[in-house]
């Protein structure tokens, strides 16, 4: 296992390096720079700004300098949010997105698996159809529509929840609903589909025949075997959700990292783009790594290190 983890770690470092490189040159390839606005910056001031941020140097020099800073753990200073450390902004805004995102992940996993399981157990019965209709609505209504509808109906018209902000615990309700509706639907469908497969598998019949109690069958066999696609999905989804949904953050006025990231791209805030991309990359790879480990825990037949011999 130790060897497995070490080699994974090396691969991850290499991937991050490639990610940084690719993003850096991609970012420089697209038109625009941090100093553009409707009112053109006078040439002499622009030249000084470029010199101060090192943007007047050849591209390769800029790249090498940036890598050097990264290795020393320095993400630099934002070019748009003046005098603010990129790492500081990430820290501040990620905390907000993380809290909101984790709640949404937990809610959507529990509700999604429960609904999916119900649907599978009552296959082709009323409950099944209800769950599937809900799932279709959950998927067919995109988060930006759902968020506005929820905000208008539950926030403005009924006044049950705050319209914006996360200042009170109640403030979390609408954003969490908007964030988890899609994943709930997705997870419910994945669960239903894979549980159905498991329920029809021979070992379940065997277990039944052996006289195993139904809850035990459900837990030991059905859920364990049927949860894998859910695990595959929840891993990257967690990475996605905790790194902030621009749409939901924008509509509910939440100061999360998703909003900052999109703003930094439209502002061409180079240091900010790189910092958040790197940060996002680490989270994604971590989430995928954990997913793989969970695979093994859930289904011991899966061997991660083995190649063809299995």
């Amino acid at each position: 296992m130790a060897r497995y983890v070490t080699s994974k770690l090396l691969y991850t470092l290499l991937s991050l390096f490639i990610l940084i490189t690719a993003t850096f040159f991609l970012m420089k390839a697209i038109p625009g720079d941090p100093f553009m606005s409707e009112k053109e910056v006078p040439a002499s001031i622009r030249a000084r700004l470029e010199a101060q941020y090192g943007l007047d140097k050849p591209l390769m020099t800029q790249y090498v300098n940036y890598l050097g800073n990264i290795v020393q753990g320095d993400l630099g200073i934002s070019m748009k949010k003046l005098n603010q450390e990129v790492s500081h902004i990430i820290g501040q805004t990620f905390g907000v997105s993380l809290r909101l995102g984790l709640i949404a992940v937990v809610v959507s996993t529990i509700v999604g698996v429960a609904l999916g399981l119900l649907a599978a157990l009552y296959h082709r019965k009323f409950i099944d159809s209800m769950v599937m209709v809900l799932a279709v609505i959950g998927i067919a209504v995109p988060s930006f529509v759902l968020a506005s509808l929820l905000q208008y109906a539950l926030g403005l018209k009924l006044g049950w929840f705050p319209i914006t902000g996360l200042k009170t615990p109640l403030g979390y309700v609408l954003p969490v609903m908007a964030l988890s509706a899609g994943p709930i639907a997705y997870i419910a469908r994945l669960t239903r589909s894979s549980m159905l497969e498991v329920l029809h598998a021979d070992y379940i019949k065997t277990a039944k025949a052996k006289g195993l109690k139904w809850p035990a069958i459900l837990w030991k066999h059905v859920i364990r075997n049927g949860i894998l696609p859910v695990v595959t999905y929840v891993g990257p989804m967690t990475a996605n959700v905790i790194t902030g949904s621009v749409v939901v953050e924008r509509i509910f006025g939440i100061g999360g990292i998703g909003k900052v990231f999109v703003e930094s791209i439209s502002n061409r805030d180079y240091t900010m783009i790189m910092g958040i991309t790197l940060f996002y990359g680490i989270i994604l790879m971590l989430a995928r790594f954990i997913t793989d480990i969970v695979y093994v825990l859930v289904d011991p037949r899966i061997k991660l290190t083995s190649g063809k011999e299995g």
Binding site: S148, Y152, L156, G159, I163, R250, I251, F252, G253
Partner: peptide, 18 residues
């Protein structure tokens, strides 16, 4: 001053008295 950059949200939060 909150920071919300959605016009629809802004008018909703105005009408909701926020």
């Amino acid at each position: 001053a909150t920071v919300v950059n959605s016009g629809a949200t802004e008018t909703a939060s105005y009408q909701g008295g926020e």
